[in-house]
Amino acid sequence: MLEQAYYNKADEIIAQHGRTQKALIPVIQDIQANYRYLPAELLSYVAKQLGINEAKAYSVATFYENFSFEAKGKYVIRVCDGTACHVRKSSLILDRLYKELGLSKEKHTTDDMMFTLETVSCLGACGLAPVLTVNDEVYPAMTPEKVSELMKELRGEKA
């Protein structure tokens, strides 16, 4: 059960976009931007407020890969594994991150909710490969050593 503050925030977002069916995507985008995920209970609430069948709202939210029903960490790290990045050893970057963060292909978010690690097919920065992003900030030409330095920085271990 979500706290009332979640519903209040959803009401604010709905008020900004209007109570129409066409507002569904912008509303759930803003909710996800606010919480770094889309709480399922809130999606049901939004559907009701917009006069949309709950199944339709879920079909929209599950169709787009960008929406997540799982809580994400403060820092969302996306490692590109597209062709250019893969050829330039993005797998070594991913391996280092798994090791540094204690994560795996099955476990994507650290217990302290600081980091979420995802792989993506392409970040659109092939000339900068291998690439990763942290909360949509691009880090080009990554190496395992650069990953370790970045993790120290994000943890506040480096001035």
Rank of each mutant, 00 (worst) to 15 (best):
E12W: 07
K89G: 08
L101Q: 09
D136K: 13
H86M: 14
Y45D: 02
E106I: 08
L43M: 00
R19Y: 05
Q49H: 09
Q4D: 12
K74T: 14
Y139L: 13
F69W: 09
L117S: 06
V46M: 01
Y37C: 03
L97S: 05
Q49F: 03
Q4N: 12
L2A: 02
E157I: 07
C80K: 01
D95E: 14
H86W: 14
K146N: 06
A57D: 01
K105G: 15
R78C: 08
D112K: 02
K107W: 10
G18M: 01
T20R: 14
E41R: 07
I77S: 00
P26H: 09
C80M: 04
E137W: 08
E65L: 09
R36F: 10
L92I: 04
A40H: 09
M142G: 03
A84H: 11
I14E: 00
I14K: 01
T119M: 13
G82K: 04
A125R: 13
I13C: 07
H17C: 06
E137D: 12
D81I: 14
G156E: 09
K72Q: 14
V76D: 08
L128D: 12
E149G: 12
E41P: 03
S44F: 14
K74N: 11
I31T: 03
V131L: 03
L123G: 01
D136E: 14
K74M: 12
D111R: 08
V46F: 02
L42F: 01
M142S: 08
E100T: 04
I13S: 02
E153D: 12
V147C: 05
D11P: 01
V46K: 00
L101A: 08
L150R: 04
P26K: 04
L101F: 13
S104N: 09
S59K: 15
M142W: 07
V131Q: 01
I52G: 01
N135P: 04
L103P: 07
A57K: 04
V134L: 08
L128Q: 15
D30C: 05
K107R: 12
A159L: 10
I93C: 02
N34Q: 14
E118I: 05
I28D: 05
I25V: 15
Y6R: 00
L117R: 05
A57N: 01
N8W: 07
Q16L: 15
L101W: 11
V76R: 08
S148H: 10
L38H: 07
L103G: 10
A125E: 15
L94H: 07
D136M: 06
R78M: 11
L38I: 07
Y75H: 13
H86R: 13
Y6S: 01
T116I: 02
V131M: 02
E65S: 15
D111F: 07
L154I: 10
F63V: 09
E157V: 06
K158Q: 12
L117Y: 08
A55R: 13
E137N: 13
N8P: 01
A5R: 12
V147W: 02
L150A: 04
L50E: 00
G18H: 00
L103H: 07
Q16G: 05
G51I: 04
V46N: 05
F67C: 01
C122D: 08
L2R: 01
Q16H: 11
K72T: 12
F69R: 06
T110P: 05
G73F: 03
E145A: 12
L94W: 06
K48A: 15
K89T: 12
K105I: 10
T109K: 07
